[in-house]
Simulated assay, not measured.
Amino acid sequence: MDGTNDTGVAASPASGRTSRTHRYRGLARTGSIATLAAMAATTLAAALARAVGVDFEVPDGGESIPLSGFAVVTGFFSAVGTVIAVALLRWSARPAERFVWTAVSLTAISLVPPLLSGADTTTTAALLGLHLVPAAVMIPTLAWSLRTRAD
């Protein structure tokens, strides 16, 4: 009978480790899918804005931001958001709440550069909106996933 109890005790840490690894991988998978969705949504929104006449020309150099640029930047910062979510799942007692506060704060900070860019009003307004599109995809998705994966 003692052998059964010993086996149960020995299996518990291993299964806890597997469960923890599964939570991190699941969150990373959710974040990856949300990142692809955010990239698609942002690129589509930029294409629609361009179709109605927004030129996305920034004063520094006078070049227009390409659609691929929106996808790349969205992908990079969405991946950063996923890494932040995984870190908070690992080290925070309240990962979902901390993630929402962090992500909303970083989104607010990201609105400053378009305002300072010196671009025309339509480009600035479109850029502000395009900062909110991936936030609207990533923040609720990762917050929900953190809530379902937290202990």
Rank of each mutant, 00 (worst) to 15 (best):
L116I: 02
P59N: 09
L27G: 07
I109L: 11
L130D: 04
A47T: 05
L130Y: 13
R50P: 10
R98I: 00
W101F: 12
G62E: 00
L67C: 07
V112L: 15
G69M: 10
G118E: 10
E97R: 08
P113C: 13
T30F: 12
V86Q: 01
L67G: 00
G75C: 04
V133K: 09
V83T: 05
A85H: 08
A119H: 14
D55A: 15
H131F: 15
G62L: 03
R23I: 01
A93N: 13
A125C: 01
S117G: 01
L89M: 04
S19H: 07
A93D: 15
L48T: 09
A40Y: 10
G8I: 05
A119N: 06
A38S: 04
R23H: 06
I139W: 03
P13W: 15
G75Q: 04
A46W: 06
D120N: 14
M138C: 08
S12C: 09
E63A: 15
V104K: 07
S110T: 07
R25G: 12
L128F: 00
M138H: 07
W91A: 04
P95Q: 04
P134A: 01
L89D: 03
V83H: 05
T4M: 10
P66H: 11
G69Q: 14
I33D: 06
T107M: 13
L142H: 02
L111I: 13
L142P: 01
S64T: 12
F77E: 04
A108N: 05
L127Y: 12
T18C: 06
H131N: 15
T141C: 10
V104P: 01
A40H: 06
F77Q: 08
T4D: 15
G118R: 08
L132E: 07
A126R: 07
T18S: 08
V72L: 13
A87N: 09
G69T: 12
R90V: 15
P140M: 08
G81N: 13
T122K: 07
T74C: 07
T18P: 00
G61M: 05
T21A: 12
A103M: 07
G62P: 02
